[in-house]
Write a protein that binds this DNA or RNA. Structure first.
Lengths: 200, 200
DNA sequence: GTCTATAGTACGATAGAC
DNA sequence: GTCTATCGTACTATAGAC
């Protein structure tokens, strides 16, 4: 029960750091807040992490390793559905819904964008571990779909993801739901129709 | 020359605030930094703006009123070109180039996203004054184009803008240029082809 | 209206007891 | 390994001279 003391505390600190950094951003989060949220003293935080920047970097790298992006795992999705329209609708709707459900994923993306200038190497970590795999998987999905004949599956994957990310940014992050709302299905329907009808 | 003293100082303060808030974000910018960047004393800053949050709000509202988004003014663009492919290519390339050229526009978008939780009303101001007009203008452009017959011009406008915004976020903001680069023309070509070939 | 000087607080990081 | 207590600094905001 008292084994892995160091690991337990380290996990608690990272959990507290996640909560605070996600809610307030890097600069507005104090090490006191992290310590309180983690249930340890501030000195304990500094015994596990060299300084504030190191703690933040460790947190981001841990979250990026978990692939905690705004998108779910695409590897489960194969081409069970023969109809490419249904396949793509399912993919797009799942992406939007998983993003809208998971408040943490949106906060994570906001944090990466917010600190991309101060911590460019962490932004690269996010791109490498989150964005790149999603684009890659979706590209394979599009390229291998039996009934889709796309000229450039990778460019199409970026168009699809970009449309969904921008929708989520506008609706969920910037509060556009109230002044600029568009139904999810309306966007997805047009998006899927646009892609499926532009075969080679 | 000494007229409009109050206005001159206020403008200088806003200019200094813009420089600092854009570079460091809200929490990491101190009122001392703003005062130094503006060339005035800190007390003068507080004589023109109630507190830090008010100064920030005034700055964001001023920038949003200038329509300083990542996109340029679309009103100049009419349908001189008969070919819809050429029209859309021109629109898309202009948007990306103006965003990549204007470092300030990218910093502004990053700032809005970064502080969208702390200042939701400022995010709404951005949506209302920047994002909404761009979507609206592009929707009209698409709807009125003589050789495009789109089922849903507004949804298509969001798809187009979203693809470009995500491209800029990945390439310019998150440093994806190095590990995840795609040629601008390759994305734009696929995007325009996808849209033009999906007519009603 | 603008300045210098400063009050009062909170920050990041550490020393030393246990 | 974890705690309490604290150091030195930097912060937001203001008081008072000119």
């Amino acid at each position: 029960m008292t084994s892995r003391l160091r690991g337990d505390k380290a996990e608690a600190i990272l959990a507290g750091a996640m909560q605070q950094f996600m809610a307030n951003g890097y600069a507005a989060t104090s090490m006191d807040q992290v310590a309180i949220a983690a249930g340890v003293s501030k000195a304990t935080v500094y015994s596990h992490f060299q300084d504030k920047a190191s703690l933040f970097a460790a947190l981001i790298q841990k979250m990026a390793a978990k692939k905690l992006g705004i998108f779910f795992d695409l590897t489960k999705l194969h081409h069970q559905t023969q109809n490419p329209t249904e396949s793509l609708m399912q993919v797009a709707c799942s992406m939007i819904d998983s993003a809208c459900t998971d408040e943490q994923a949106i906060a994570f993306m906001r944090l990466i964008v917010a600190e991309s200038q101060r911590f460019p190497e962490l932004a690269s970590t996010y791109v490498e571990n989150v964005a790149k795999p999603v684009i890659s998987q979706l590209t394979q999905f599009l390229a291998n779909h039996p009934h889709l004949q796309l000229n450039d599956p990778e460019a199409t994957a970026r168009i699809l993801i970009g449309s969904l990310v921008y929708y989520i940014i506008l609706e969920e992050m910037l509060g556009g739901k109230q002044t600029l709302h568009m139904e999810r299905d309306r966007l997805v329907r047009t998006l899927v129709a646009t892609i499926t009808q532009s075969t080679a």
